[in-house]
Structure formats: C-alpha cells, structure tokens
Amino acid sequence: MTPQEIFTSLTDKFGSDTILALNAEACDPWIEVAPASIVEVSAFLKAEESLKFDMLCDLSGVDYLEPDAKRAKKFPYEPHLEVVYHLLSVSIKHKITIKVKLPRWKNDEEGSLPDVPSVAHVWKIADWHEREAFDLVGINFIGHPNLLRILCPDDWEGHGLRKDYEFPLEYHGVRG
C-alpha cells in the first residue's frame, strides 16, 4: 500500500483528531499520530489484514533542538522531541514511518521526562528499543514492563543524546 492509502485507512478508523498529519513528500513518508493513542494505532497497524505491519524495524527518539544560538536562527524545526517508529510488513513487503511529537520536558519543567505510552506489548522488540530511547534520549514510556537503562550504567545521570546534555567531568572518580 502507498503511504496515502495507509493514511486514509488510519483516518477512516481513528479520525483526524488522532491521525494528525501525513508528509508524503518526505524521503521516507511519515504519518504523525497523537501520543495518547499510539498503542491503539500500533495494535491496529499490526492486526489489520491489509496493513499487517508485523515487524518494528526501529524505534528512535530524536531531540529537535539547536543549542548554538548562531545556528539556531537557521534551524528549520521548532524545539521538540519525537519518537519515530519504522514499521515493515514482512508478508506484504511495504513500510511506513509513524511519528509522535512530544514536548522536550513535561509541563516545561526542566528535568521531568515527557510521557508516551509504551508499545512493548504490541511488538516484543519495542521493549529493548524503548529502554534505549529512555536511556539515551530521555523519554518516559508509560506501561513499559522494565524501564531501566540499557547501554549506560544504572547510576548514570542525564540522557546523552539530548542536545543540551552536558558531559560529566568525572564518573566515580574517573576523570573524563
């Protein structure tokens, strides 16, 4: 199915309050979904016979921010966070990208991580991918069975792939 057809079948099912936008001109066409409904949309994408997105290829968090003031003037995006789901159907052999846009911090309080429902119960692999996104980008996946850091040590502070992350000067007495 083409991205346009997938978008139409999603809007027919969920309405335009949930399925927010389609960008068909992008190199990889993507569909934006409201964060609160991502689990229902994912379950539908996986179960529906004509879509059958049975494999979650990748789940990544992206921090849209330009910390450098001079470069920020030319920065083409508003500061926000995104969770990007790259889906593939092994049987039908088509793919689509689903996006969820989040604020960088919950309620604009620096340090409080934004929430998004976890899809770990829809695709099993999302378990580890979400742990990585939590670890490195700082996104709180609600309903995740075991949301612990996966690549960094458990007592690590901060989330490395945030654009305003400050590198620690030392870790347990070891200078960097």
Binding site: C57, V62, D63
Partner: peptide, 18 residues
C-alpha cells in the same frame, strides 16, 4: 538500519544506527 535526520547543516541532526 541507519536513520539520518538533516537540518540544513553538513552534520546530521540525528545519526542513528539500528
């Protein structure tokens, strides 16, 4: 998988290796 997001600079804004 490689996931590259550009922002008009020579360096990508996000370079992910799945």
């Amino acid at each position: 998988g490689f996931y590259i997001v550009g922002d008009g600079q020579a360096e990508p804004m996000r370079a992910r290796a799945k």
